[in-house]
Amino acid sequence: MNTTVDVLNILLPLLYGGLLFLYGRSFFKTASRADRLKTAALAVTVIIHLIYLLLRTILFNHPPITTPFEIMTVIAFCIAAAYLFIEGISKVHGTGLFVLIPAFFFQIISTLLISDLGEVPEILRSNLLGFHVTSALLGYAAIAVGAMYGLLYLMLYHDIKSNHFSVIYKRLPNLEILESMSFRSTLFGFICLSIAIGVGLLWLPIAFGEIFYSDPKLIGSLFIWILYAVGLVSKRVAGWHGRKIAVLHVSAFIIAIFSITIVNFFFRSFHQFY
């Protein structure tokens, strides 16, 4: 089984690279064979990735959430699976190249640096923690997809506004669809993050007894959650649409990534288990 996991670990970035090639070719050239193959290739990649995660869980006897590089492969999987789902329900096929780029890079970094944690702390074996981490990862994957659609909205908006009718103009779906996809992904991400925070707060006193409400990661997560909550409320209350909301989705995601990075590198947190 060890060999299978190792082989799949090397295979996955190649599969994601192949997907980028197919989606890229289909984006820049319609009526190509890539047009017909890409969705099937994505489905196969998602299935292989899922098998890899399951085998890894069985082999090491814990879910792949114990190191940043295990988490990265789970995020890559979540992005690819979320995109497959979105493509299936929206029938919009022109955006895969952009959405799958982060999945590809997350997987490459994971493949190069992943290793098993020799001793897994007992705390990481809790079911509540598993639920908390899964919701958080799904949430971050969804807001990443939402931000990517926001970015595509801004690119197309710029093309139309400035009479620069590039390949972006030709291949992307219309502004309203991009806005709707960005909003739906972000809303889904927000719901997942809310669940993650809720479950985390529930699990904290059980796991530690003494509660660290001043923990930097906790404050950072709440800050991100409030940012998204304000954005979603503004859309509803102030009737924000279009460019404003796209800018909000993209900037909120950048701030979220930035704050996670700052917290992880510069502050000590009880959240570090490895």
């Binding site: 197309l156 139309i160 103009y169 779906p173 219309n174 502004l175 309203e176 669809i177 709707s180």
Partner: peptide, 9 residues
């Protein structure tokens, strides 16, 4: 065509 790039329906 331009209108179809702005509006979905």
């Amino acid at each position: 065509e331009l209108a179809s790039k702005i509006f979905a329906d």
